[in-house]
């Protein structure tokens, strides 16, 4: 039970960065982006290329992949979503669906369907208070915590962070307060891309690298963001931990194959009964 809870916490922590990306993107762009899973996959494979194929240590490989993904996301937005900006949520959601197909299958094309792993030294798992842990999980906790702290500072202390929150709150007011929306959108994609890249690498460390790796987490990540309240960064953090722990604990009562059922039900229940989630605020769409 304790072990399961710990595993759940780790799963939750892995999801905090992608959930934050989802919530930031939703806040600024006003639609749920279904391509985030595949974006994590592509970034993870980029890190894999640097790490396992070129011999870079994982940390610089991840950093490079993060910068690359952030830049790539800006480009993707420019080509795919910008022409559709005025069209409304459904169009953008469908486009993101198509984008997800493209990205995941680029990874599949390049690396095939078999599972890969990062090149990191194997370390012995250890036990603390009857709970088995390993080094990858410690790294996950450390990296995610550091990233969350950085994001907190960015969102609350920097002008761009404030601008992002302002646009999420009220886009037209942001315009007349001098905030240029294209710039905010670019920064949001860049940051989201970096968060998704780190999330992808953490997934790759926790499980394995294979083309559906990111999409497998899509539903859980969205559940986390929705539970926390779409648009609320604090909510993304809390939501991810809750979904992670509850999903793992549910395997004690529900057949393991239905693990995904928990986040699915959570999404349905929350959107029907309390769409703003735990911390979400009402916001202005236009």
């Amino acid at each position: 039970m304790l072990q399961t809870t710990f595993n759940g916490i780790i799963t939750g922590v892995i999801m905090t960065l992608p959930a934050l990306a989802v919530t930031l993107l939703f806040g600024v762009l006003k639609f749920p982006n279904f391509a985030v899973g595949a974006m994590m996959t592509v970034a993870a494979y980029m890190a894999f290329a640097l790490n396992a194929q070129l011999g870079w240590p994982l940390l610089p490989a991840t950093a490079a992949a993060a910068l690359a993904m952030g830049t790539l996301c800006i480009g993707i937005d420019h080509v795919t979503f910008k022409p559709l900006r005025e069209r409304g949520g459904i169009t953008l959601m469908v486009a993101s669906l198509g984008l997800g197909f493209i990205l995941e299958n680029i990874a599949r094309f390049a690396y095939g369907n078999s599972a890969r792993s990062f090149a990191i030294e194997l370390a012995r798992p250890f036990r603390i208070a009857d709970v088995r842990m390993n080094q990858e999980q410690m790294i996950t906790l450390g990296v995610s915590t550091a990233a969350m702290i950085l994001m907190y500072l960015l969102l609350t202390r920097s002008p761009m962070g404030r601008a992002m929150r302002a646009v999420a709150d009220n886009p037209s007011l942001a315009l007349v307060r001098g905030i240029e929306s294209p710039r905010v959108i670019r920064w949001t994609w860049f940051i989201a891309g970096m968060l998704l890249a780190v999330g992808g690498v953490l997934i790759g460390m926790d499980r394995a690298l294979e083309p559906p790796m990111g999409s497998n987490y899509l539903i859980s990540v969205f559940a986390a963001a929705i539970l926390g309240g779409l648009g609320s960064p604090l909510g993304a953090f809390v939501g991810a931990l809750v979904i992670g722990v509850v999903s793992e604990l549910s395997t004690l009562v529900v057949p393991p194959n239905y693990r995904i059922g928990v986040p699915l039900c959570a999404i349905a229940v929350i959107l029907i009964f309390r769409p703003q989630g735990l911390f979400g605020h009402p916001y202005i769409r236009k």
């Binding site: 795919t80 559709l84 069209r87 169009t91 469908v94 486009a95 669906l97 198509g98 984008l99 997800g100 197909f101 493209i102 995941e104 299958n105 680029i106 599949r108 094309f109």
Partner: peptide, 15 residues
């Protein structure tokens, strides 16, 4: 994989 990429691209282009 290529076939699915074509589907995705086709969908976006249509949109």
């Amino acid at each position: 994989a290529i076939r699915i990429i074509i589907i995705g691209v086709g969908l976006i282009l249509l949109l």
